[in-house]
């Protein structure tokens, strides 16, 4: 595979960002530290957004605590592998064309859209979150 200089540059930058991200979220507990950003939607509206609890969930995941992560934000636990799949699918688009084709079926993307909206509504209705 021929990699352009640009591709290598991006790979390095993204790798560094991901490593920093993981280190920060591994070291600090968002439920105790004060410097993590608070959810805008929650502060403005008082309702939980689909992503509320993600930071604590990531912290729990990095410590191997799946149960806690599931309580903080169940959808994040499900969505991470999905996002990874889509990310790889996008990057390998030229090579795995059939794979990319199936990933981008409109009905599949529509299902993802509906699932996020449903999760958003239901977690507020049923209180599926940790304050």
């Amino acid at each position: 595979m021929k990699l352009s200089r640009r591709a290598i540059g991006w790979t390095v930058i993204i790798t560094i960002l991901v490593v920093v991200f993981i280190l920060v979220y591994f070291t600090f507990d968002p439920s105790k530290s004060g410097f993590f950003p608070k959810c805008i939607t929650l502060q403005l509206t008082g309702y939980r957004c689909p992503g509320c609890g993600s930071q604590r969930a990531i912290h729990s995941l990095l410590h191997g605590d799946f149960a806690a992560a599931w309580r903080y934000n169940a959808m994040l636990v499900v969505a991470l592998p999905v996002m990874l799949t889509y990310g790889v699918g996008d990057m390998m688009r030229a090579r795995w064309r059939r794979f990319h084709y199936w990933l981008t079926r409109p009905w599949l993307m529509g299902t993802i859209f509906m699932l996020i909206v449903a999760w958003w509504v239901l977690r507020n209705v049923y209180g599926w979150y940790v304050p």
Binding site: T41, L42, G51, A79, M83, G87, M109, I116
Partner: peptide, 21 residues
């Protein structure tokens, strides 16, 4: 799609669900 989901779910910006659409 990936970026739309990341901004919607990870960044607490549900408005970017419009981008999924």
């Amino acid at each position: 799609l990936v970026w739309a989901i990341i901004t919607a779910v990870l960044c607490c910006l549900p408005l970017s669900l419009v981008a999924v659409f």
